[in-house]
Each structure stands twice: as C-alpha cells, then as structure tokens.
Nucleic acid binder design. Structure first.
Lengths: 187, 187
DNA sequence: CTATATTAATTAGGAAGCTAACTATTAGGC
DNA sequence: GCCTAATAGTTAGCTTCCTAATTAATATAG
C-alpha cells in the first residue's frame, strides 16, 4: 500500500476542514452502483451519481477555500464576519449570526478568536446593555485590504473554466438542486 | 428583530453541521457587490455570484443530508464508513481513511463511535499485528438494510427537479468548477 | 409597579474535522 | 542479524459547528 498524501502542504497551516469525500471514484464506481441498484429498486443510478459528483466538488472547493483563507490566518467563518463588519460597522453578535446563518453561540466563538487576534473589538452598547457592538480594528481593516485583491483573483480563477453562459446555467441548476433539499429533510 | 428559527426541528437530534451560509442574499446583494467592484478591480461580479450560489447550495444540501442521517443516528462520515464496509468486509482503518479522504485520526474517532453503538467491530489482524480489520456487525448490517430504501428515495427526491439532461450538464459544470480549485490553492 | 416574558450573550458539553507526536510492529540496508 | 525506516493505529490539542442551559437586562401584562 502506497504512501498517502496526508500532508499535501507541509509546513503550512492548512487546517483543511474537508468534508468526507463521497465514496464515488473510490469505492463505488458505476458498476458497483448498478449492482446495488439490483438489490434496491429505489436506487436511481443517475440521481446518486449526480449527488456524489456534487458532494465531491463540494469537498474539493471547501478544501481549496480553507487553504486559501488559512494563508491569512482565517477560516471561512471568520472571513465572512470580517466582510460583514466592513460593510456595516457595529453589528451586534446576533446580527452577525442572522446574516451568517449560524447560531449565536458559534458567533461567540468566532468573535473570541477574532478579538484574540486583534482584528475585531466588542464594545458595550449604551442604550441596551444586553447587547454589544462589534467593530473592525485597523488591523482587521488592513488585513481585508491586503487580502481582498488576492481573494477576488482566486475567486475568478476558481470559475475560470466556466464561460459566462455556463456560470449562468450552473446557478440555474444549483437552484433546482436546492429546491430538492426539502425532500431530504421532510419527516 | 424577529425570532430566529435557531431550532427548525425541535426535539430532534438534527446536529446540523451547517457550513457558514455565504453572505449573499444576506449582506451582499448584487448592488453591494458592484460597489465593492469599484474599489477592487480584481472583483469579477459574475464569478463571485456563481461562487456564492455554489456555496449556498452546498450549505443547504449539507444541512439536509445531516438531518437525514441524524434520523438514523448517523453522520455522513459514519454512513460512508458503513457503506464501505458493506461493500468490502474487513477493511483496515487506513483503507477506510484512504477511501473516505479523511485522516486516520478521524477514522479512529468515527470507528470509536460506531463501535460504541455496536454497528462495527475492530478485530486484530494476525498476519500484521499493527493492523486491524473492521467488520460490520449484524446490527450494523440491519441498520443499512433498514435505511437504504429511504436513503435512495430521498436522494432521488433531492435530484427530482433536474431532468436527465440537466443532471448530465450539472456534472459537466461541476467538473469544470473542480478544475478551478488549484487556482484557489496554489502558492 | 411588580411578576413574568423575552431577548442577548455566554457557557458547557459534544461531534467531526485537522495536525503533530507517540507507541508498536514490521521491513530493509549494510 | 542488528539498527534504522517506515507503517498502523492512537492520543492530545485545536477549530468550527451544534444544542441546551445560564445570566443579565429589558419589555410587558395585570
């Protein structure tokens, strides 16, 4: 058994929060799927293949973004927070949670990290003492200024293999995929 | 500010490992993006929009899968492991790691959980005492048998809004997106 | 105007990832 | 044949997410 590339980027803080690579291309190839389909009449080979292709892309893009952000000592969550604050200064932690789609508990943790690193500041809110206002520090603002050109270049690069029409089509198809998620969640 | 649906599924073990919802549709609408684009010439609005659409779909599909698997007391990682073992009995933890695309340390943790729940068994390997062989128990096999019909139905449901041609197109476009990940990672 | 509701933030505890370091065991070189 | 390399699995410690419970402050109802 050959050596695995467990550390693709030695001596870098990659912190790749990779989602489990779906087992397509690894365990379940198309023929294995067809064998399974014989046992389970519910299995639609094309649907499963498309799903696995999506999950695999998801994992790869996540990993790529994680290594990108790690270069600047950030995670995607922290970056999102910094971007929010650069757009609207003085958001409350609850605002941040709502806009990010994560819980307030998670925001507490991310802000702890950002504050420890000096990128962000929590200030008391005089009119309602339950609340806080979160502000970018100059260090935080400078970090964004420094990284955004690279960030946007890389985003363009990520999409560079798709033509303008293809990007539009991709968005359309992703919306259709999104519309299927209730079927996965429903009781 | 209105009450947030922090618990969309009360009294259920949802354990939704949702990726941070990208801030599109929340903070940065198209006009905000265009404003940013004036400051950063590197920003390609279409590329960023496509990227955010993808990330948002990613988050929603992940959340849907997590709630689906949680119904059976599983995570996606644990399910993947069970499926691997149902295809090839007696894999070593290293095999599992390689096939899943996660580290061996992660596999140790997942196997601990699966073994605690009685779904899986670690047995010593006589010819090489460094290794272990992992086997499904009957409980594990039964769980899979019980859940797979539902699982495949829901997978079909997830993809139900895409025609056969659209699924093919989606896979093609996802491959092109995947081909862009090196641009995000490169030094 | 006090008792109860709600809201904001945090804390505690857990899961699933990661890296790095450690322990056994096996394999290979001289 | 021993000494060193490599390999397999685990452990320790970190991050980011979650839910549930706690604390403090405000709002509301009677």
């Amino acid at each position: 058994m050959n050596q695995l590339p467990y550390r693709e980027f030695p001596n870098e803080i990659t912190q790749t929060v990779s989602i489990l690579r779906p087992f397509v291309d690894r365990v379940v190839d198309r023929s294995a799927l067809q064998t399974l389909a014989q046992r389970y009449s519910e299995l639609d080979v094309d649907a499963v293949e498309a799903c696995l292709a999506f999950l695999r892309t998801t994992a790869d893009v996540q990993a790529a973004l994680d290594t990108h952000f790690a270069r600047y000592g950030l995670s995607m969550g922290k970056f999102t927070l910094l971007m929010q604050l650069s757009q609207v200064d003085g958001l409350t932690p609850s605002d941040c949670a709502e806009r990010s789609g994560v819980t307030r508990a998670t925001i507490t943790g991310l802000l702890d990290g950002l504050e420890r690193e000096g990128l962000v500041e929590r200030r008391p809110c005089p009119d309602d003492r339950r609340m806080l206002r979160v502000h970018l520090t100059n260090v935080g603002r400078n970090l964004l200024d420094r990284m955004l050109p690279d960030h946007f270049c890389r985003t363009t690069g990520l999409m560079a293999n798709l033509s303008s029409n293809e990007k539009t089509t991709l968005i359309k198809l992703l919306k259709k995929l999104q519309a299927g998620t209730p079927a996965m969640m429903q009781p």
